[in-house]
């Protein structure tokens, strides 16, 4: 076993030494290095080599990078789209293709398209992404990707679509909507998330409470107090306590005081700190 393992590693070293070099961020890339990194299957290696070839004029790189747009890993789809974003002809072609895919019936292609358009981060993509996020014939993964892309773009024009996505039937989509809401620049309030504090999914409830807290939206106070005292999930209760501390309304004192004896240590310390800040 040891011999085989050593041999594999040794062979890999020989294969890679040819392409190894001193680290110069943004310099020194090549098609061979990208292809070699893709062959290793290492996410870190692939990302590093695409970053190194950020501005490399490299026709030979293009097919390899385009293949990554369809990779199973989001990180690789993202870095491939980032690399293509620097190449306007390719970018325009991919934008057109992605917009078409987003409107098509193949959920995997729609997912990839959403990730591409999100990485390109142009607000012009918001209508297409919003439409995809609302389509029940697409998979939840594709809808989630569309909502995630809206957050990545971070423009307030996405708010309507994000609110709609908070009512999606799938928890991963609702969670992405809550997460994306916070990524919108100049986001002013968290009112649409108050209802999610009572969501059926614990991760969604926890995220909603945290977003309300970060945005200090006092309209969520009653829902947060109810969650703090009644939610079965300790992470939700913790986030509710933290959010109430951020909102800082003295009217939350009773709920926070009760939470200082919560069964979970996650909640107790947070409640104490929140009380100290009231």
């Amino acid at each position: 076993m040891r011999t085989m393992k050593t041999n594999i590693l040794a062979a890999a070293v020989v294969g890679l030494l040819t392409f190894a070099g001193t680290a110069h961020a943004g310099r020194g890339g090549s098609a061979a290095r990208i292809q070699n990194a893709v062959a290793t299957g290492s996410t870190d290696a692939i990302i590093a080599e695409l970053e190194r070839a950020e501005r490399l004029i490299c026709d030979a790189c293009t097919p390899t990078v385009l293949d990554l747009i369809d990779h199973d890993k989001y990180e690789l789809r993202e870095v491939a789209a980032w690399w293509i974003a620097r190449r306007p002809v390719l970018k325009a072609q991919l934008t057109e293709r992605s917009t078409t895919d987003l409107a098509g019936s193949d959920s995997r292609l729609a997912r990839n398209a959403a990730d591409v358009l999100g990485t390109f981060r142009h607000p012009q993509a918001i209508p297409a992404l919003a439409a995809a996020a609302a389509r029940t014939d697409l998979s939840s993964e594709a809808r989630m990707a569309a909502v995630r892309a809206l957050g990545t773009i971070g423009h307030r024009n996405a708010n309507t679509a994000l609110v709609a996505a908070m009512g999606d039937g799938d928890a991963t989509v609702r969670l992405a909507a809550a997460t994306s809401w916070l990524q919108v620049r100049k986001q002013a309030n968290a009112a649409p998330l108050v209802a999610l504090v009572g969501d059926a999914d614990g991760d969604v409830r926890a995220k909603a409470a945290a977003v309300i807290g970060e945005l200090k939206d006092a309209s969520g106070r009653a829902a947060l107090e109810a969650a703090l005292t009644g939610d079965a999930n300790p992470v939700v209760r913790r986030n509710a306590a933290w959010a109430l501390g951020r909102i800082g309304d003295a009217g939350s004192r009773a709920a926070l005081t009760a939470a200082t004896t919560d069964a979970s240590s996650l909640v107790r310390q947070t409640a104490k700190a929140a009380l100290a800040g009231l």
Binding site: A12, G15, A20, N36, T40, G41, T43, A45
Partner: peptide
């Protein structure tokens, strides 16, 4: 090195 280990 991540690429070498990935290849292995």
């Amino acid at each position: 090195e991540s690429g070498t280990l990935g290849a292995a």
